Each structure stands twice: as structure tokens, then as C-alpha cells.
Amino acid sequence: MAAHQVADPSDILLVEDNPGDVRLTKEAFKEAKIANTLHVVCDGAEALDFLHRRGDYSDAPRPAIVLLDFNLPRTNGDEVLDEVNEDPELRSIPVVMLTGSESETDIVKSHCLGANAYLTKPVDPLQFIETVIQLEEFWLSIGRAPESGT
């Protein structure tokens, strides 16, 4: 089985307000034949509703990983990360910051708030697609996270 083909497809939550980056991420999943389901929300408040299964997201699946942009409207990525790591039911979900910010302050803050990784989005579309593929391969095929509720 190829590294990007997982036995049990997982749900991935992408929190991204840039439509171009959403399109590239979807293209990367399609190109790599990634079987996981990608759920997209465009701001931090929606991300928290999805994760807490509130409102329109009352039947949302628990994602196996969250790909979180740092700079978001309404509720910023660092605020989402902080809330996820303060919640005992959510803190076991790996959160990867996938952002355009190269700020050392943002990197340090993300790790202090519990980010599992911090990746700067490549500007080149082909490199961006390769980054998404590698990220999925590691976090959903190679790496292991605790089962929900543990």
C-alpha cells in the first residue's frame, strides 16, 4: 500500500481563509489520490464550531488532524490553538500550523500553545502541493496520535 493510502480514511479539518490555498490543498489531495475527507472552514470561529460540534456542525466528524492557518478572520489561529489545547476532549487532535507567516514570534507562540508542527506555505504551487502530500503522509500514514477520548 502506498504511504498516502491509509487503510481507514480519516477526516481532516482545513482552516483556511485563502480560496487559492484551499484550491491547491484540494488539488494536492486529488493528485496524490488521498482518500481522506477534507473539511474546509474559512475562519477560526467556524473551526471552533466544527470541533465543538455546534450549530451547523452539530454532526461534524472528529478530525484526525487540523491544518490551521495562523492569520484568520474573526478568531485567529493562535486563539483556536489555545482553545483546542485547553479542552480535554480536543487536545489529542494533532494541530499543524500551515501558514504563510514566517514570523519567529508566530512560530514560538504556536509551539507554546501546543502546535504539533509549524509549516510555512511555499509560494510555488507545486511545492505547496508537495508539502500537503508529505504532511498527509506523515500525520495520517506514519505518525500516530492517541485515540479520541484518551
Rank of each mutant, 00 (worst) to 15 (best):
residue 56 D to F: 14
residue 142 I to R: 13
residue 17 D to N: 10
residue 48 L to C: 03
residue 108 V to M: 10
residue 56 D to N: 15
residue 79 E to P: 01
residue 145 A to F: 11
residue 93 I to G: 01
residue 96 V to P: 06
residue 40 V to S: 04
residue 29 F to I: 13
residue 107 I to A: 00
residue 146 P to C: 05
residue 40 V to K: 07
residue 130 E to Q: 11
residue 20 G to E: 04
residue 111 H to W: 13
residue 51 L to Y: 08
residue 26 K to E: 15
residue 137 E to N: 08
residue 106 D to C: 09
residue 24 L to Q: 02
residue 102 E to D: 09
residue 58 S to Y: 15
residue 143 G to H: 14
residue 126 L to M: 04
residue 123 V to L: 12
residue 96 V to H: 01
residue 139 W to M: 10
residue 86 E to A: 14
residue 96 V to A: 11
residue 99 T to R: 06
residue 100 G to V: 01
residue 13 L to V: 06
residue 62 R to M: 14
residue 38 L to I: 14
residue 131 T to Q: 09
residue 41 V to F: 12
residue 21 D to I: 03
residue 79 E to Q: 12
residue 120 T to N: 02
residue 110 S to P: 05
residue 114 G to V: 11
residue 16 E to R: 03
residue 38 L to Y: 09
residue 75 T to A: 06
residue 7 A to P: 02
residue 29 F to P: 14
residue 31 E to G: 04
residue 129 I to T: 01
residue 12 I to F: 02
residue 67 L to A: 07
residue 73 P to N: 11
residue 145 A to S: 15
residue 139 W to E: 05
residue 133 I to A: 12
residue 18 N to W: 03
residue 79 E to Y: 00
residue 75 T to E: 13
residue 62 R to F: 10
residue 21 D to K: 04
residue 33 K to H: 13
residue 65 I to V: 15
residue 116 N to S: 08
residue 30 K to S: 01
residue 50 F to N: 05
residue 73 P to W: 13
residue 104 E to L: 12
residue 142 I to K: 11
residue 123 V to E: 07
residue 144 R to W: 00
residue 112 C to E: 14
residue 76 N to A: 08
residue 121 K to S: 11
residue 118 Y to R: 09
residue 1 M to F: 06
residue 127 Q to W: 12
residue 3 A to R: 00
residue 104 E to S: 10
residue 13 L to C: 02
residue 140 L to R: 03
residue 84 V to P: 10
residue 56 D to R: 15
residue 71 N to G: 00
residue 54 R to P: 10
residue 47 A to G: 12
residue 73 P to R: 12
residue 147 E to H: 11
residue 5 Q to F: 00
residue 128 F to H: 09
residue 93 I to M: 06
residue 67 L to T: 03
residue 124 D to M: 09
residue 71 N to M: 06
residue 120 T to K: 04
residue 3 A to N: 00
residue 137 E to F: 00
residue 117 A to N: 14
residue 133 I to G: 03
residue 8 D to F: 03
residue 129 I to A: 05
residue 104 E to A: 12
residue 77 G to E: 11
residue 3 A to F: 00
residue 1 M to A: 04
residue 133 I to Q: 14
residue 86 E to Y: 02
residue 141 S to I: 07
residue 141 S to Y: 04
residue 48 L to Y: 11
residue 110 S to K: 03
residue 131 T to P: 00
residue 42 C to A: 09
residue 4 H to P: 00
residue 75 T to F: 14
residue 105 T to A: 12
residue 150 T to G: 14
residue 119 L to A: 05
residue 121 K to T: 09
residue 92 S to G: 10
residue 20 G to V: 13
residue 2 A to P: 15
residue 30 K to M: 01
residue 149 G to N: 07
residue 51 L to P: 06
residue 80 V to Y: 02
residue 51 L to A: 08
residue 116 N to V: 09
residue 128 F to M: 10
residue 48 L to A: 02
residue 64 A to G: 14
residue 132 V to G: 02
residue 88 P to Y: 13
residue 140 L to E: 01
residue 25 T to D: 07
residue 30 K to P: 00
residue 123 V to W: 01
residue 112 C to W: 03
residue 136 E to A: 13
residue 55 G to K: 15
residue 134 Q to S: 09
residue 132 V to R: 01
residue 34 I to M: 12
residue 117 A to I: 11
residue 35 A to F: 03
residue 93 I to F: 13
residue 76 N to C: 07
residue 49 D to I: 10
residue 1 M to N: 02
residue 15 V to M: 09
residue 110 S to Y: 05
residue 75 T to K: 15
residue 14 L to D: 02
residue 99 T to V: 11
residue 66 V to R: 00
